[in-house]
């Protein structure tokens, strides 16, 4: 099950559920009711699939509050052709194996198994092939 409904579609292919403003045309994620850039209420849902390029990256080595998955895990920002940069997990947890501007594919990854035995999944980016 998704870590939160309405963030992404699992596909295949997966996509991020973004909002595109009908007034200023800027794209935001997660999709909001109002445009965060011009306050307009003319937001359309758009599905953004990538690929994107890696804009910043690191690895998280200690579990942050409320996180039950494995460490270390990759963490970064990916720039998408729609003009939006998205904060995301990165499937590569060794920063030395990543480089700026490399192509990144949107994927869905497992985070942990919840108390009912269901696999909780989220969006992430993986280095392109």
């Amino acid at each position: 099950m998704p870590v939160r409904h309405g963030l992404f579609v699992e596909g295949p292919p997966p996509a991020l559920v973004c909002g595109r403003c009908g007034t200023c045309a800027k794209v935001h994620f997660p999709r909001a009711l109002l445009c965060p850039y011009c306050s307009a209420d003319t937001v359309d849902e758009v599905h953004v699939r990538g690929p994107g390029t890696l804009w910043a990256f690191t690895a998280v080595t200690a579990p942050p509050p409320g996180y039950a998955g494995d460490v270390p895990y990759g963490f970064g920002v990916v720039e998408l052709p729609e003009g939006v940069r998205v904060v995301a997990r990165i499937t590569e947890s060794d920063p030395a194996a990543l480089s700026l501007d490399e192509s990144m594919e949107l994927v869905v990854v497992a985070l942990h198994t919840d108390e009912l035995g269901r696999s909780v999944v989220t969006y992430a980016f993986a280095p392109g092939s």
Binding site: V3, R4, L7, W55, A56, F57, T58, V60, P63, P64, P65, G66, Y67, A68, G69, Y73, F75, G76, V77, V87, R89, L111, H112, V120, T122
Partner: peptide, 20 residues
């Protein structure tokens, strides 16, 4: 959901800013 996905990693954001 941000905590559960590992996105509440405050030092991670500092690190991304440092990298840029």
């Amino acid at each position: 959901w941000q905590e559960e996905a590992g996105l509440a990693a405050t030092p991670g954001y500092f690190a991304l800013r440092a990298m840029r």
